[in-house]
Design a protein around this nucleic acid. Structure first.
Lengths: 342, 342
DNA sequence: ATTAGCACTCGAATGACGCGAGTGCTAACA
DNA sequence: TGTTAGCACTCGCGTCATTCGAGTGCTAAT
């Protein structure tokens, strides 16, 4: 267990290190806190904190730097989410309330804003309603061999895709397909849709609309697009600011990882608490040893829950990040409820 | 005027510098060419080339490095576009012929491939038919207050956008708008469409469908999206490989410039020759002093002309870049003719 | 338990030094 | 007149020694 003084020292050390980026020595702590003791006493405490693994030295005669364990303690017990400045607050409200036409726009703007305000990299994932249902399906013949498929769900997603058929379109064939879909898929939960689409539907089409197997093939991809999670990543370039000592190859890997849906999924998909922080090795990926991933979820009633994430250096300002994220999760809940309501 | 030997020396110097990245001295040139002379003679020639401004020294006793003027001469007279290897050729064909559903996909894939194959940054702009016409316009009521607008042009572009109305949709109002559009815009060249959309159309709507002014407002943005150029940029991260000595702030500016449509337009919009190279200061933008921009156009008959661009260091391999670009322009012409044909 | 004092450590900055690649110039040569 | 061997000179770069100072741990006194 830590004494009050040890906690103050740890807290001060982390804040000082976060703002200067330099290892912190006993004298600095002395002048920057109102602890009533000498530097020697603080040194003794530092030795103790180091033994417990909260801090470490970069070399034998250097000041101390927080360890993962130290950050963990800080985040679990000492973080004070920082209030977001009025003007920034205003920007967030303005941008997210500026009525966006589509879900993706809102998510995209959120990611951009979040990375701008934090100067880190932001990842935003739209609300996922486990229970959302397919509410609409249409096929629209655009011309002789282009068809547009439109899919709607009750989570507000509207997905569309144009595809080309190798032979001229037969309206009655299309209608058969639409009928089959309307009858077997529309109104069902997306999970069920996905299952049926792979199993029952091809059989039905084979039986009642065998001319339209090619339409079916194209449709499969439309549906998989629409059920797939859409990750919005912004501020990848900010990685430059906190990867100065990282070699170029790693930086490139990291960059392309952030463009890969599968990797992003592994990174933040499982999050379920309101707030969560993974520090360095806790992320469990060799590329991320010097990063922290701060995640927050936001709820949009029965439209599901979305995820916000900020990727920054382990030495990031958690106070500020928590503050910004908190504003975002409230604002997004509000914005999206409006979006669904209208 | 340069003698044959001086040309050989300049050519060798540029090739050597491109492949090593190091200043080139007289002895190196001696061993790497079959010039029958001593290093002293070559030194004399180097002095001459330097006087003419084709090469320069990095410091008083260093080897020589090509100057912009030298590169200019090289590109105008000495470049030998390098044949693209069989296997790469195959990849290009496979990817670009793999039937894409939409124009944007083809452009996007092209940019990705082009940046991968060159290791530089690629910019691709789809064919722009000055004369293309609006061939189709539809409004589709998706539900009580969501409408999808679909626009087609004879250049193959199919643009769609979902927008929201603040009040429940009245089908007959929509029909009025569609009628007005069909009557006054469909079949006309896009240039005319743009003009009418700003001038005549609002008056007509005011007169015959005054309830639908809000629909009109939303539609304006759909049209402007569809006529706007779509720049596809890929491989921005490759900038890291040739900006080692650039400061971070500039790199960031450069990066965000490449995400800005307006800036990209200034950069490559005016290109009209088959091939064009701008070297360093020739680009006329302070951020680009150490870069070269190699551009090529490709023609798709009466569907217009598109642009391919590669942004790399001034010391890039022009031979290779020209080779790759040449394959792309031919392949894209072919791929897009097919696309429009089907 | 605290603290003054002190020897010790080590990174970072500084400067001296030599190496070597490359140059320009001169004088001799074909 | 063009070419070349020879040579003194330049300058970036890497190495090494030195210094400086911030910071530490330990000891002994309070």
């Amino acid at each position: 267990m830590l004494t009050q003084r040890q906690i103050i020292i740890l807290d001060a050390l982390i804040r000082l290190y976060t703002s200067t980026g330099l290892p912190i020595g006993s004298k600095t702590i002395l002048t920057e806190t109102d602890i009533d003791a000498s530097s020697a006493t603080i040194r003794n405490e530092l030795v103790y904190l180091e033994k417990l693994g909260f801090i470490q030295k970069t070399h034998s005669s250097s000041g101390r730097v927080p360890s993962i364990r130290g950050y963990r303690f800080y985040i679990d017990h000492l973080v004070k989410p920082q209030a977001v400045a009025k003007d920034k607050m205003q920007v967030i409200e303005d941008v997210l309330n500026g009525h966006a036409e589509q879900m993706d726009d809102i998510m995209h703007q959120s990611a951009r804003l979040l990375s701008d305000l934090t100067s880190y990299t932001a990842i935003v994932l739209g609300p996922r309603a486990e229970s959302s249902r397919l509410t609409g399906f249409r096929l629209l013949a655009l011309n002789d061999n282009h068809v547009m498929a439109i899919i709607q769900t009750d989570s507000g997603a509207i997905e569309n895709k144009v595809f080309r058929l190798s032979r001229p379109i037969d309206e009655s064939d299309l209608n058969k397909v639409v009928n089959i879909f309307n009858h077997h898929l529309v109104g069902r939960p997306l999970t069920e849709v996905a299952r049926k689409l792979a199993a029952d539907i091809p059989l039905l089409i084979q039986k009642y609309a065998s001319n339209s197997m090619d339409v079916y093939m194209s449709l499969e991809s439309v549906f998989s697009d629409s059920t797939e999670d859409r990750f919005h990543v912004s501020g990848k370039i900010n990685l430059l600011d906190f990867t100065e000592d990282m070699d170029k190859q790693k930086l490139k890997s990291l960059y392309s990882l952030l463009e890969n849906k599968g990797d992003l999924k592994l990174l933040i998909d499982h999050i379920s608490q309101d707030f969560d922080v993974k520090i360095g090795e806790e992320i469990n990926h060799e590329l991320f040893t010097s990063f922290s991933l701060v995640t927050a979820t936001y709820e949009v009633r029965d439209h599901g829950r979305g995820i916000l994430a900020v990727l920054g250096p382990t030495s990031m300002s958690y106070d500020e990040t928590f503050g910004v994220l908190d504003v975002f999760r409230k604002q997004l809940t509000h914005t999206l409820l409006n979006y669904y309501l209208e």
